[in-house]
Nucleic acid binder design. Structure first.
Length: 213
DNA sequence: CAGTGGCC
DNA sequence: TCGC
């Protein structure tokens, strides 16, 4: 037993150097975040993107902010226009920005101003295989990941795909932040389990904030 | 069944 | 090759 555990603010779990889990941080802004999310996906519908290999991702995705992450047969990239509409992605809601910046500060990353928010919708069975977030120009900025709706098992590994994985259940309102020496850690989400419900419906939503450019 | 390697 |  160590005193370090008690040196952290309540609800903050250090999971690796530069990485932490802020349990329930989004709950205080739940209503505003949920409303803003509905508005964004009404303007830029969730869609199943293709991988460069031509397969369809099980997670439905959209974006808000100046840049959006897209995948198709040409590869992964950030772009200013929604390929479905050829219009800019919806603006980043102020409530999204405030939550992302609060989480980054609590995690020890000052001056985080995301220019991209990837929205992932997981139905039962949807998953995201182990991967690294490495499409961003400047990897000195952290990743801020907000969980809403149904719970899911998060895998958090090392800098090599074969490294041992931490597995933890992410609940509605939890926020994970990773940056610095953990910025390129592999991570993923196991297939969403059935049998659970929330007032947000039978989905898990994930908001992933990045500084892409 | 979780983890690993390899796919072209 | 963020899937199988």
């Amino acid at each position: 037993m160590t005193l370090d555990l008690f040196a952290q603010p309540a609800g903050k779990e250090i999971i690796a150097p530069g990485a932490c889990l802020l349990r329930g941080l989004a709950l205080a802004r739940e209503s505003a975040i949920w409303q803003a999310l509905q508005s964004v996906i009404a303007q830029a519908p969730l869609r199943h993107m293709q991988t460069p290999g031509g397969l369809t991702m099980s997670v439905a995705m959209s974006n808000c902010g100046p840049l959006g992450w897209v995948s198709d047969r040409q590869g992964y990239r950030y772009q200013a226009l929604d390929p479905l509409s050829q219009q800019p992605w919806p603006a980043m809601p102020a409530e999204f920005m405030a939550l992302a910046q609060q989480a980054a500060i609590l995690a020890g990353f000052a001056d985080f101003t995301p220019d991209a928010c990837l929205i992932n919708q997981y139905a039962v069975g949807a998953k995201l295989s182990l991967h690294q977030d490495k499409d961003e120009r400047d990897q000195s900025h952290p990743i801020v990941s907000v969980s809403l709706g149904l719970p899911a098992t998060f895998q958090f590994g090392g800098l090599q795909r074969s490294d041992k994985l931490l597995r933890t259940e992410l609940q509605h309102g939890d926020v994970v932040v990773w940056g610095g020496p953990s910025r390129l850690r592999y991570h993923g989400i196991l297939p969403l389990k059935s049998g659970t419900f929330s007032y947000m419906g039978t989905y898990r939503y994930n908001l992933t904030f990045r500084r892409a450019s």
